[in-house]
Nucleic acid binder design. Structure first.
Lengths: 203, 203
DNA sequence: AGTTTTTATGTACAGATGTACACATAGTTG
DNA sequence: CAACTATGTGTACATCTGTACATAAAAACT
């Protein structure tokens, strides 16, 4: 477009095999390209996805991306589906490490802050996926998977209506917080969750 | 890209002045171009924004878009800011037509359903704006304006904490509902709002 | 009137992009 | 070993894109 992009996205260029300009079977290359695509989306946004940008980020030649993926939309679809599944898996893992008597507002606050802070990249990609799905029916399933997982998870600790409600609060806070600068305070988030579950003070 | 785009986006081509290939002062042209940009975003997504696509949608020659906007990012920024301001204005207008004793869950449900249904385009653009702002600091102010307006509005009918909480629920429901097919049921939304404000049944 | 400024348009051009494809190499099978 | 297939790479090319700019017409101004 306008700028010249200093080509320093990852510098993974020959990280995996020093010379050997030829070819050795490299299983997992497909997946590595897909992950590189995810990181391009995270760092530059979905509109900057390009065969060349992804190839550079993955440290593979241009031809490699067109060999493993028929078209750019294919690549995008695979990458985003993978990102969504990773997110859901990570969410389930997090849920498994909790017992059923937890202080829900507190742990939900932790989760929100984690998604806005250390795992901001993940959150950004998830949001890009959502919006991309608005104009690409092929991506809708991957998008809604995340919502479903959230809802099921929260429902398991409360009931159906409250689960949906908390999932909405959670989404809303993420949605609002991801563009905000600076990050919201912990107390602010927690207070909101406590109000949502009906507490006026922590018990 | 891949497809050839049948060029039928709006067909506004000479809607405003029949012949007159030359030039007559046309005030509002700038704004008309910006609105055309918004509709391109709504119909095709933000990544399809192009001088040529916008020009076609606005019914003006290519040179006109480059004359009125220094760069494509400028055009995008102006268009999205305008869309955001329109949304906020429309929201305030809606709020003015309400008295303070309303049944909040009911009217919030109405609003959600309106944004998901008749005004889906508006909602789509707002969401595209949000995600675009993730990688364009210049757009952040316009994005957060909407959140702020929502929060202030809801706060006026309850209190600060509940206002924020309801704004989050609202955002979350919009966020989840916009990708869903088909639209959620009215009862589902309303039940969630009632739970959020602490009712178990309508009083 | 003439002169300058603003508004408008069509065209041109360098660069980026998606994708095809000819070639090369590595595994596999006989 | 030879024949074949799957995998990998570099290059080429038509197309699209942003943007500059020469030209022109109208408006404003003196």
């Amino acid at each position: 477009m306008t700028t010249t992009d200093s080509e320093s996205l990852h510098a993974t260029v020959d990280e995996r095999r020093g010379r050997n300009g030829g070819s050795r079977k490299d299983p997992g290359r497909r997946e590595r390209i897909a992950r590189a695509a995810i990181s391009v989306v995270a760092e530059r946004g979905i509109e900057k996805i390009t065969h060349r940008a992804v190839a550079a980020a993955a440290g593979v030649p241009l031809g490699s991306t067109t060999y493993h993926f028929a078209t750019l939309d294919d690549l995008l679809a695979v990458a985003l589906r993978q990102a969504a599944q990773d997110n859901v898996a990570e969410l389930r893992e997090w849920a498994d490490g909790m017992d059923s008597g937890v202080d829900l507002p507190a742990v939900l606050t932790d989760l929100v802050l984690r998604y806005l802070g250390p795992e901001r990249e993940r959150t950004v990609v998830e949001h890009e996926l959502y919006v991309a799905a608005l104009h690409r029916p092929a991506l809708r399933a991957a998008s809604t998977e995340w919502d479903g997982a959230l809802r099921d998870l929260f429902t398991a600790y409360t009931d159906e209506v409250s689960g949906k409600m908390l999932a909405a609060v959670f989404c809303g806070l993420l949605w609002q917080g991801i563009v905000r600068e600076p990050l919201p305070e912990r107390d602010e988030i927690e207070t909101i969750f406590r109000r949502a579950v009906g507490d006026t003070a922590h018990g």
